[in-house]
Design a protein around this nucleic acid. Structure first.
Lengths: 241, 241
DNA sequence: GAGTGCCAACTTGCATGCAAGATGGCATTA
DNA sequence: TAATGCCATCTTGCATGCAAGTTGGCACTC
């Protein structure tokens, strides 16, 4: 009986709203292409034909075309009328734009978190602190991959716990755009150690319930990271990546 | 003769880069549907069939379907597999999210503007001041439409002059989402007069080159507007709009 | 009368056909 | 040899066909 009710309820929910519809071919194409761009199987500047991609994915042109529209909306490719799909490159100026967006969004998120009521704020603080601890350990152990994962988790939590779906989505989109750059720079950067201290400063401000200070700390953290990254990229002559 | 030149010029531009390609049927469908949503010909909650829209626009289902994908990416509709296109409604909670995004982005934009070198900063200040003056005049004249236009122009300039394409795009998308709400609330709000003073405070901070103050002023301006709007919407029982 | 199941009508997902735009190379000319 | 123009080829924009999923109503049962 409960069983039937449960099934009915979830079926209704699925119909109603947050349907986890099983992936369509369009979804497959979208995921495959995004993956290919992330791991540089599709290098920036490469001009692919929909036909060719469709063939490789074993589907017709239609779902590939529709996925390309979504990727264009995400800023990852450009669909050139009658000339194919162009994989977009990232210039240093794009990184400047991207960092400004992140500074804006994460700053506001930190501010919002610091304004939460005590109980929820403490839960958030605990989560952020846990990730930062993992970072510190990974740093000591020289485990760059673990460091990167925990850093990503910290920043993801920072935004997601502010419970603003639009802010979360914006940050995700922009992280997708800069994915290649992040992978590259993780290896280039020398000053990863500073992040732990800065994360803890952000956490402290949130713990104390000081929105202005939280915003400012988050702000400065990203600003410093950007100011270290951009010259690095330019000195390596990376006009586009 | 002029005709031939014009054609040649536009053709070259189209090939080159920032192509203003002549609108495809997909573009037409996208514009028409967005327009219909904005002026509520498609009311929120309405479930349209692609076939029907295609018929009305005099095209086949394909371009309508592709336009629907873009509108979904914009957060204006939801494409329900095999059930049609659902026009999304806006709940008060969505307005909260939207305002937080605007606060974040405009705050950062104001900060960036205040950090510009003198000459460019002065140009920006002049532009912002001009729009605010128009607002003051419109306010005195009781011309609500003019007030709204100048207010929109002020906020658009605030973001666009920061020269960050991604921030501009984000704000545009979010403004599209809240278009209906803005049209409605323009008539409901009583305290539009305060905006002029707040705009001038933002402008002053930019003129003085004080990034922190500029950010804070922009921040507070939107926060006040939000805090006046949300209760208003809820008191009117507008669960969705 | 309430509940159940079946079916016809409708809707989209995806494949494919066709036409028009874009491109690169080859032939032609000076 | 360098420049020009034409054409075969490739590529997408869009229409349409078909199949599968969804829905609402009607008949049937109890």
């Amino acid at each position: 009986m409960e069983d039937r009710m449960a099934r009915t309820r979830s079926a209704a929910a699925a119909q109603d709203q947050e349907a986890e519809r099983r992936p369509s071919l369009v979804d497959d194409a979208y995921a495959a292409m995004k993956q290919a761009i992330h791991d540089s199987s599709f290098a920036p500047g490469y001009q692919a034909s929909e036909q060719e991609i469709a063939l490789r994915l074993g589907m017709s042109r239609t779902p590939v075309h529709e996925a390309a529209i979504r990727l264009q909306e995400d800023g990852l490719v450009r669909v050139l009328p009658r000339r194919g799909i162009l994989i977009l490159a990232l210039a240093p100026d794009d990184m400047r734009e991207i960092y400004d967006v992140i500074i804006a969004i994460e700053g506001r998120a930190a501010e919002l978190l610091a304004g939460l009521p005590d109980s929820r704020r403490n839960a958030v603080v605990a989560e952020l602190a846990a990730q930062t601890d993992i970072m510190a350990e990974a740093w000591d152990a020289g485990d760059l991959a673990a460091w990167g994962q925990a850093d990503a988790a910290f920043h993801r939590a920072l935004v997601e716990r502010a419970e603003n779906g639009r802010m979360t989505r914006i940050v995700q989109t922009i992280n997708d755009q800069s994915h290649r750059a992040r992978m590259l720079t993780l290896k280039l950067r020398r000053e990863l150690g500073a992040s732990v201290a800065e994360h803890r400063a952000i956490i402290d401000a949130i713990r104390l319930g000081d929105p202005g200070e939280a915003q400012d700390r988050a702000h400065r953290h990203r600003l410093r990271a950007r100011d270290e990254l951009l010259p690095l990229l330019e000195s390596f002559g990376l006009k586009h990546l």
